[in-house]
């Protein structure tokens, strides 16, 4: 469904590429955890999938279409089909829970509808259903800055859910949360993943979480793909190879 072919990304002014010659394919139903040290290229990798980060060499394909050759409209459609959650939640401050969730529909609406907040009652219902799905027990009208970290991430997941995504991306979504909350968020992600038969690709630092929930683990080191296998294959030797300091 998603294919990386010889993908490299070099940031302007950088000597070394952030991502170097990555070849990989993802299929529907896979719950993939991406491991690697800080600066290994995990965030760059995730952002290449929905085109937030353009590639310097190679290409990313969605089904049969190359992302870099898509029209602007097609790129927006790819993003619309991709729910993404972030480490710092990236919610819009001073807006309520339900308003934040409704922004997930921005890709489906015309500009004037977004600007004036012209959402149908079915859209609102969809947002309320997403609140139920993520088991959020706060008032939908509550402002998001008043929520805890775990609650904020649930709002972010609900925002991604209303997009009706085919692909779920997570850029270290539990890095700012305590271990208990992190586990519960992963349970929620897995449940949603199974229910909707998605492709989920999630960056994570916690190897235990990755081994517990992933159906496939990949690892990056200095921008290179150094491991691609099942959680069982990810043993201590692989762990040492990925996380031990090379310098």
């Amino acid at each position: 469904m998603i294919e990386f072919k010889s993908v490299s990304v070099t940031y302007p002014g950088a000597k070394e590429p952030a991502l170097a010659d990555v070849n990989i394919t993802f299929q529907k139903g896979e719950f993939v955890c991406v491991l690697g040290r800080s600066g290994a290229g995990k965030s760059t990798f995730i952002r290449c999938i929905n085109g937030l980060q353009p590639v310097s060499e190679g290409y990313v394909k969605w089904e049969d279409k190359t992302l870099s050759e898509m029209t602007h409209k097609e790129t927006l459609e790819v993003r619309r089909k991709t729910g993404m959650i972030f480490q710092h939640f990236n919610l819009i401050p001073r807006m309520s829970v339900v308003q934040n969730i409704l922004t997930g529909l921005f890709g489906y609406k015309k500009s004037y509808e977004n600007l004036l907040g012209l959402f149908k009652s079915s859209d609102r219902l969809q947002a309320l259903e997403a609140i139920d799905q993520v088991e959020l027990t706060v008032e939908p009208t509550r402002r998001v800055e008043k929520l805890s970290g775990g609650q904020k991430q649930r709002v972010a997941i609900a925002r991604a859910l209303v997009q009706n995504p085919k692909v779920f991306l997570g850029d270290e979504p539990v890095a700012s949360l305590d271990p208990g909350t992190a586990d519960r968020i992963f349970q929620l992600l897995k449940k949603t993943h199974v229910k909707r038969n998605l492709v989920s690709i999630i960056n994570v630092h916690d190897v235990i979480l990755a081994k517990k929930f992933a159906t496939r683990i990949i690892a990056l080191k200095d921008g290179k793909l150094v491991f691609d296998g099942t959680p069982e294959e990810f043993d201590d030797k692989v762990y040492a190879d990925i996380y031990n300091h090379s310098s």
């Binding site: 993003r79 089909k81 939640f89 990236n90 401050p93 529909l105 921005f106 500009s111 977004n114 925002r159």
Partner: peptide
């Protein structure tokens, strides 16, 4: 962060910028 989130949901850039920045 919110600007990136708005791009990620497939919003047009100007709409995303407006909604992500103005409330802040």
């Amino acid at each position: 962060g919110p600007m990136e989130a708005m791009l990620a949901v497939g919003a047009k850039k100007w709409i995303g910028n407006l909604f992500a920045v103005l409330p802040q």
